[in-house]
Design a protein around this nucleic acid. Structure first.
Lengths: 185, 185
DNA sequence: TCGACTTCTGACCGATCGGTCAGTACGATG
DNA sequence: CATCGTACTGACCGATCGGTCAGAAGTCGA
């Protein structure tokens, strides 16, 4: 693996664990055994480093949005296939997702976070088309935020976590349940 | 209101909006129209300020825990009364709750956060007694984290949010649903 | 052998951080 | 009037922050 990729990985992990503001370039350099100057050679700034670290996750989410219109006419409400793909994408990029969820308030104005905000808006916009009640939307927000939070938690704590497959199943099932109207069918 | 209380309120709001690490004592002083030295006169340190700002929320949560054993034998699973009280407490202290939820990773070792961690552990411990499956526990975590996240979001963004009463009802209903075994009764 | 390019480093910069300290203004108390 | 405690302030401190820069070391093709 190239030095650049090593830095990218260490930065993503550290940003997720102790926060972007709580991480210094020096600490990231120490993590990978290089110098602060080396980090700033590969990336123009700390912000650029964050952007590069989050890019794969944002790319994946954007391509999921592009595929969303084709997936949703499968059912009127959220289709199981859509939710499954969503959960898989979240879990594949849990570090970046966790950074966005818990730090987007503190990082307003940072390009990478603004891009992620736009993605969330796009998701909400397409969901609103088929889930007009604020009730279902709120329920879905609870579910998505909760799932994202737990993913971040598994990264930053060494608690005993249940195995990823079980977690995945619970996530999918719970999100589907929350995306239904609620009371009963 | 005393200067001390004004500082406390401004600090709580700022910590919730842009993060503890993203807030400087100078900025908080500017918010209330006083000097950095004045803030440090009323509070020994930035950490002490955080602790004092979060204390009311933590006190409320602790007293809720104390009342928990008496409330739970009402039903085997989470009782509606318990959930309602829980949601009300969360909403009454949304700023402090939001700080804990989204920044406890970055603030490990800070006394106020350690105290909050202990509270969460206590809640989990009492819940485990009656909800032994990791499945229900995960579902509850999703719900609680999701609710807490939304509360923080309403503070830090100027989005159009639905009215608190509606939100409260959805929170309670959703949490009760998630605390059930799932599939059906 | 000679540049040219990439990778990387240590020295250094101004700004800001949390925190200390000596001192000031002032109302209450004797 | 003198004294004391409370509230508050500006000057200052060392440390760390993100970022710049000149140059060293190694690897190329010409």
């Amino acid at each position: 693996m190239t030095t650049r990729d090593t830095i990218l990985q260490a930065a993503l992990e550290r940003f997720a664990r102790v926060g972007y503001l709580g991480s210094s370039i020096q600490q990231i350099a120490d993590d990978v055994g290089t110098s602060k100057s080396s980090v700033l050679y590969h990336f123009d700034s700390k912000e650029a480093l964050l952007e590069a670290a989050m890019a794969p996750a944002l790319d994946a989410m954007e391509s999921l949005i592009d595929a969303l219109p084709e997936l949703r006419h499968e059912h009127t409400a959220a289709a199981p296939g859509l939710v499954t793909r969503f959960v898989d994408t979240l879990m594949a990029h849990s570090a970046a997702i966790s950074i966005f969820i818990s730090q987007r308030g503190a990082l307003q104005g940072v390009p990478a976070i603004e891009r992620a905000n736009a993605i969330v808006d796009a998701i909400a916009r397409t969901l609103v088309l088929e889930a007009p009640t604020p009730r279902v939307l709120t329920r879905l927000s609870i579910g998505l935020a909760g799932v994202a939070f737990i993913l971040g938690d598994t990264l930053s704590t060494e608690h005993d976590h249940l195995d990823p497959h079980e977690m995945r199943a619970i996530f999918i099932e719970t999100l589907l349940e929350l995306s239904s109207t609620g009371e009963d069918a």
